[in-house]
Amino acid sequence: MSVVVGATPVVDDLRLHDLLDLLDAGERERAARKADPHPFVTAHALLRSLVAEETGADPRTLAFVKRCATCGTDRHGKPHVVGMRDVHVSVSYGEHLAVAAVTRLGEVGVDVEDLESADFDGFNAVTLDASEVAHLDGLHGDALLAARALTWARKEAILKATGHGLVVDPSQVVVSAPGEPAALVEWRAAQHPPGATQVGDVDVGAADHRAAVAVLTTRPLTVRVQRR
């Protein structure tokens, strides 16, 4: 079995109206509150399209709810497809690129990071466990930023899959070195560990972005990427 990950550039004004037509009233309201609605609209339209393709449903009739694993509220947290308990989804977006994931394997998290987002002096302190700092030794320039972005995407994907998000300190989620196959090496957080977790890197076809997906499952992970 596999996880399907869609990746697409954020749309311009010409396509924004068409994608808004796919969203429900709540999503359109949330988009209208954003300073730049384009990334949000692109990502949520992509998610609807992926779920529709995998299930045969009409993308316009799909309904989503959020549930926070930490506090239990429905005001934020992981998205879930109403009426499809065996379909697990996740979404992520930045200024230029959006990704979404759909699978029946288990709870899923996907994350995409722009290299520029990893370009700050305190990255190691806020993101890495001491054992991970050595993974970046000797790297400079874009190579360093790419390694940082990939490491961050792996951690964020795992924390989205577990539902914890950044309630858990990302430095407590130890992942494999950037040059090695993606994996959760150790969960050091106080929160209950997630159990079997499969992690995969995602080639989104953009040299200035890195992405990863994580699924809570014991089964081997096959990632099918759809670039749009």
Results as ranks from 00 to 15, higher is better:
A118G: 04
H38S: 09
S171Q: 09
V91K: 01
L145K: 08
D142V: 12
D121T: 13
P194E: 00
E132S: 06
R33Y: 10
A134L: 15
A190V: 15
D36A: 13
D169L: 08
A196P: 13
V87K: 01
D201K: 12
P220R: 03
V204K: 05
E54T: 07
A32I: 14
P59A: 09
P178V: 00
D24I: 03
A25H: 10
V87Q: 05
E95N: 15
V99N: 03
D86W: 10
G122M: 06
H88M: 08
P178A: 00
T162D: 01
H17N: 11
L216Y: 06
A157N: 05
D114Y: 13
D208F: 09
K155V: 01
V185N: 11
V167M: 14
P194D: 01
R224S: 12
P79R: 03
A157V: 04
R188D: 06
A190S: 10
V112T: 07
A69G: 11
V89W: 01
V10F: 07
E132H: 08
V204H: 05
A63T: 11
L115R: 07
S171E: 13
H38E: 08
Y93H: 15
D18S: 13
A206L: 09
T197I: 07
H88E: 13
S176Q: 08
E29P: 14
D119V: 06
P178N: 04
A100F: 06
M1T: 12
A182L: 05
